[in-house]
């Protein structure tokens, strides 16, 4: 390990893919640091480059350009050392083949990580209860529910007690209860074991609840790097969401003239405005829309969420893509 207290230093990390339709620049040279003991969320819509970034940092994918120091080891020249020090939970995969059993798979994983049989067995006993998987050792993976399998995936990444863990959409497919439990577990990994965590998510509430810091990704680039609070503060003021019976583009124009809002974005079937003060902005907005002949269907005033942050940063909503 180097003296630095940085778990990750990514420098111009980039990856492009050759496809039949031409080259795809999945990640376009990202720079970021992650400190020891931090929980960092990688947030972005489908295809933003989150998985590609994680796969590069975990040595699974060779970067086209750039490099990174991961857990103190150079990603390119000391990839094996990196592997020794990290845990990785991949994005959800296909249903496992019959004949693979949970306990055996976890022990196989631990042994490949260099643990001996006894240590792996002990670790299995200790880890399963924390992920609500007690008694599942003998279960065939193909016979488990999606959520149970997801928790098994998480266990795979934690068997060898790594100090730096990458989780790619860890809570996708979990029910609210399991989701809350996993959040709890992730927090305790950091709080009680000093584990550094990098996770990707589509869920704003997850990013908001879990992450100390967020890297917002869009189209292969990091468009923002800040705490959830600071990001929300960027969208200072209030957010007004309006839906009308009629032309939204016209509504946007009318609203723009009436309020001079800070941002003014058409998002699906809604118009999203950010203004200094929502309460005083609504009456003139209503009058303006009315006189333009646009019948109002609904209007909402709320404090900005990360979704609004994403919308103002990229002009696109995150939520639209979330289930895509």
């Amino acid at each position: 390990m180097t003296k630095s207290n940085l778990a990750i230093e990514s420098r111009q990390l980039a990856r492009s893919f050759k496809t039949k339709a031409g080259p795809v620049d999945a990640v376009k040279g990202v720079d970021f640091d992650v400190s020891d003991g931090e929980i960092v969320g990688l947030l972005g819509p489908n295809g933003a480059g989150k998985t590609t970034t994680l796969r590069m940092l975990t040595t699974l994918l060779t970067p086209s350009r750039g490099t990174a120091l991961v857990a103190g080891a150079d990603l390119i020249t000391h990839s094996r050392e990196v592997r020794r020090r990290i845990g990785y939970v991949a994005q959800i995969g296909a249903v496992p083949a019959p004949g693979t059993r949970l306990g055996e798979e976890l022990i196989t994983q631990a042994r490949l990580q260099g643990m001996n049989k006894a240590a792996a067995t002990d670790r299995l006993k200790a880890l399963l209860p924390t992920l609500d998987l007690s008694g599942f050792e003998g279960r065939t993976l193909a016979e488990m529910s999606g959520g149970q399998r997801r928790r098994f995936d998480v266990a795979l990444g934690l068997m060898h007690d790594p100090k730096l863990v990458f989780l790619d959409e860890p809570t996708t497919g979990l029910d609210p209860q399991s989701r809350a439990n996993l959040w709890e577990h992730i927090r305790s990994l950091r709080d009680n074991h000093g584990v550094t965590i990098v996770l990707t998510t589509h869920y704003l509430d997850e990013a908001d609840a879990l992450a100390d810091r967020l890297l917002v990704m869009d189209d292969g680039q990091i468009v923002a790097d800040d705490t959830p609070e600071a990001l929300k503060a960027r969208v200072s003021g209030d957010v007004i969401t309006v839906s009308v019976d009629g032309d939204l583009a016209l509504a946007a124009k009318v609203a723009g003239e009436a309020l001079a809002p800070r941002t003014n974005v058409v998002d699906g079937n809604k118009l999203v405005l950010t203004v200094e003060r929502g309460d005083t902005a609504v009456p003139p907005l209503l009058r303006a829309l009315d006189s333009a002949g646009l019948r109002l269907k609904s209007v909402q005033v709320h404090r900005p969420t990360l979704d609004d942050v994403f919308l103002t940063l990229t002009g696109r909503s995150l939520r639209e893509d979330a289930d895509g």
Binding site: R80, Y88, A90, A97, Q113, G114
Partner: peptide
């Protein structure tokens, strides 16, 4: 090929083995 889809290959590759 099936193991690739299941993520078995990746999970083994990410170890120092």
């Amino acid at each position: 090929i099936q193991e690739l889809r299941e993520g078995v290959v990746d999970r083994q590759r990410v170890t120092p083995a």
